[in-house]
């Protein structure tokens, strides 16, 4: 079907960005929880894990940024405009791209939120 772009959007591409947030979140929490367990020495520093979280955050933000730029670029180049209520496969595609952009934006902010505690806390207290 000709819809004038490279990526054919679907429900999976729609949830890519929040899925990246989810994986990032789990790895951040899981790694630090593992690093501090069994939590007997609360002043134990977690420098290595903080670096890990930092690196992970860069990767996650890059991934989400890519999703964001890809969807936004395709939406703009193909003349996307809200409210996406016409009856055609093209408009459905534009709608999915635009919603992907929104979700990527939310996921981007949420990843930064998640990373903040690791930027500020130095030990297992």
């Amino acid at each position: 079907m000709a819809i004038g772009n490279k990526t054919r959007d679907n429900l999976w591409t729609l949830i890519t960005a929040p899925t990246i947030w989810g994986v990032h979140f789990l790895l951040c929490y899981g790694s630090v929880a593992y690093g501090c367990a069994p939590n007997e020495n609360i002043f134990q520093t977690i420098g290595g894990f903080r670096i890990f979280v930092g690196g992970l955050t860069v990767v996650a933000l890059a991934g989400i940024g890519f999703v964001f730029m890809r969807a936004l670029g395709e939406w703009r180049r193909n003349g996307g405009r809200i409210p996406h209520e016409e009856d055609s496969a093209e408009v459905r595609e534009r709608f999915l791209e635009f919603s992907t952009v929104l979700l990527a934006g939310l996921s981007f902010i949420a990843v930064i939120y998640t990373a903040l505690p690791a930027a500020m806390m130095v030990d297992c207290r």
């Binding site: 929490y29 977690i46 939120y113 505690p117 207290r125």
Partner: peptide, 13 residues
């Protein structure tokens, strides 16, 4: 009594 950094992640979300 979880470590504060764990709480931080969930507080942020």
């Amino acid at each position: 009594g979880l470590p504060a950094i764990s709480l931080g992640f969930f507080s942020a979300a």
